[in-house]
């Protein structure tokens, strides 16, 4: 099993599985080339890299590239890595999970989950990658397991039954 951290991404080939833990307002983007059986998973925290550029976004101390934090640059990098590993861009499909609203304040930062999901949709649409399944929004955290074997996505939450999409 390959673990993808916060603001991180990685790829896997069958029969391996990718996992990312405890998505809250973050979104997990799972891309899959079913014929080549190559899977990719990105765990993004924020919608757009250009919005944060003024804040001086830098590389993280844990070696994770700053670009992986954002929906736009994260997805772009994930596609590039997958294609370098043999996947074909036109064959990719997407499953997405996360983007919850963990706390019920009104200020924009607390709607970040919704904004993340919206950004992910727009970026995927721009790459013409269809979203074939999703489990987003609501108010709870999710741990997701993405299989490169069959492209299935398993979603676990603290007090919910396991969901497979």
């Amino acid at each position: 099993m390959i673990t993808v951290g916060i603001a991180d991404l990685n790829i896997a080939k069958a029969p391996e599985r990718l996992v990312t833990y405890a998505l809250g307002s973050c979104v997990g983007i799972c891309l899959y080339d079913a014929d080549r059986r190559i899977a990719g998973l990105a765990h993004i925290m924020l919608p757009w890299s250009k919005e944060a550029a003024a804040g001086g976004a830098k590389s993280g101390s844990s070696g994770v590239a700053a670009e992986y934090r954002f929906a736009d640059t994260g997805i772009t990098e994930l596609i590039r890595l997958m294609c370098a590993a043999g996947a074909r861009k036109h064959a990719l499909t997407a499953k997405i999970a996360g983007g919850a609203k963990m706390f019920s304040f009104n200020s924009s930062v607390f709607n970040i989950g919704e904004r993340n999901v919206e950004a992910v949709r727009r970026v995927l649409a721009a790459y013409e990658i269809p979203i074939i399944a999703e489990d987003t929004g609501k108010d709870y955290g999710r741990t997701i397991f993405f299989s490169a074997e069959d492209g299935s996505l398993e979603i676990r939450a603290a007090s919910k039954p396991v969901l497979k999409i």
Partner: peptide, 11 residues
């Protein structure tokens, strides 16, 4: 909210 630490911290 009570939930997984990672999800709580994401905010």
């Amino acid at each position: 909210n009570a939930d997984m630490a990672g999800a709580i911290l994401s905010v």
